[in-house]
Simulated scan of single mutants.
Amino acid sequence: MNAYQHQFMWHLLAYAVQRNVSLPALCRANGIDEPAFRAGRLPDLTEQQVVMIWQQIGAATNDPLLGLHLGESLQLAALGVVGDLVKFSRTIGEGVMQAAAMLPLVTELWRMDVETEGAVCTIRFTPERPEGSQPLSFLHRHMLDMLLAFTLHEVNGLVFSRIAPVTVGLPYETAETAEYARVLRCDEIRTGGACYLTFDRHVWHEPVLTANYEMQQYFLKKAGEMMQEKALRQSLRDRVESYLMTNAYLGIPTIEAIAANFNTSARSLQRHLQEEGVTYQQLADQVRKTLALHYLEVRNYPVKEISYLLGYNELSAFTRAFRRWTGTSPSMYRS
């Protein structure tokens, strides 16, 4: 965990205490030193510990919308340098763009993309690792709700006008649409599809009250250094897998091609991956599986085209691989 992920978890635990959750019980259950927590310090937490903490707080508060209500309560300080970048940007659009680029400093679960087209601008949230038709995990869902509420409420605190989205998209069905409408200030909540917030385009040009170009440049430099440090700490496996996913629209490259991109030889790349307990073929295969499930789920491509996109020369080869991954054929999986 980096410093800002620590900081966010500290805010989550502090919020739990405000909701009458027992701090000593949370600390004991997760191996956290209570005096250290009260002094603003947390130990490194594993992904499993983070999930357990979220679940324990959700159970203790009996709140199915824990993430949404957490996001409603947070301030920009909870996001550290990412919040600082938003606070000192010149316009809302500029601040949101900066936040989207630096979101990996806060969470590795979701990617934030910004689009402007015609009279609207859209903020989209996409899982960093799509998992086909599998439902979102507990942590994915509550982190997403937090990001939606937090994005809207903090943006509103930086301008003179009241900002509300035109439409909100949620990637799951929910019986709590009225509460989403209240927190997100939007009557048009669309469920079961993509996740997004759409705004009238004029919002993008709203000036930020606390705009400060020099401070923005300072925090932009600081965030860039942290992103670089984060990249250096990544394992080679993570870097290769991330590259494959990010550039999947170009097809799955050969190991020689990706080695050249990493400024090394294919033999050296394979050797280092094997030291981390994996081969390039296994990583490529996993990415193909993830993308195959995703493409079949969105139903925008015929099976033959998916086969081509994933680098299979013959449909039969793709079908055999898909059976190995899932135990069924692509056509049966889609039906």
Rank of each mutant, 00 (worst) to 15 (best):
D238H: 12
A25D: 14
G80R: 01
G83W: 05
T264C: 15
W10T: 03
R324L: 13
S316Q: 10
A29W: 13
L136W: 06
N20P: 01
V82R: 06
R41F: 10
T264R: 14
M102W: 03
G169H: 08
S268Q: 08
N20D: 04
E117C: 01
A321L: 08
R111E: 01
R38P: 06
E94G: 13
H140Q: 10
T167P: 05
Q55R: 15
H6L: 05
G31N: 15
T290M: 11
D113F: 05
A178V: 05
V159Q: 12
A39H: 08
L68D: 03
Y308L: 08
K304W: 11
P127T: 09
A3N: 12
A100Q: 02
E276G: 05
E241M: 13
E305G: 03
E154P: 01
V159H: 06
N156W: 14
V278G: 03
M245Q: 11
Q55E: 14
F150P: 00
I252S: 11
R334G: 00
Y312C: 03
V287H: 04
V155Y: 06
V81Y: 07
L23V: 14
M227V: 06
Y218I: 04
S137W: 00
H6V: 01
A292R: 04
E314D: 03
A100M: 11
L283T: 02
N261T: 14
M332R: 12
Y249I: 06
Q216Y: 15
T191I: 07
A259I: 10
R185V: 09
Y249C: 01
L13C: 00
R267I: 15
Q134C: 09
V114Y: 09
M215R: 14
L291M: 14
A321W: 09
S235F: 06
A164G: 12
P127I: 03
Y180F: 15
Q216A: 11
S242P: 00
M9Y: 02
L76E: 05
R323G: 12
R334V: 00
P64N: 14
A101M: 05
G327C: 10
A175T: 13
I189L: 07
F8D: 02
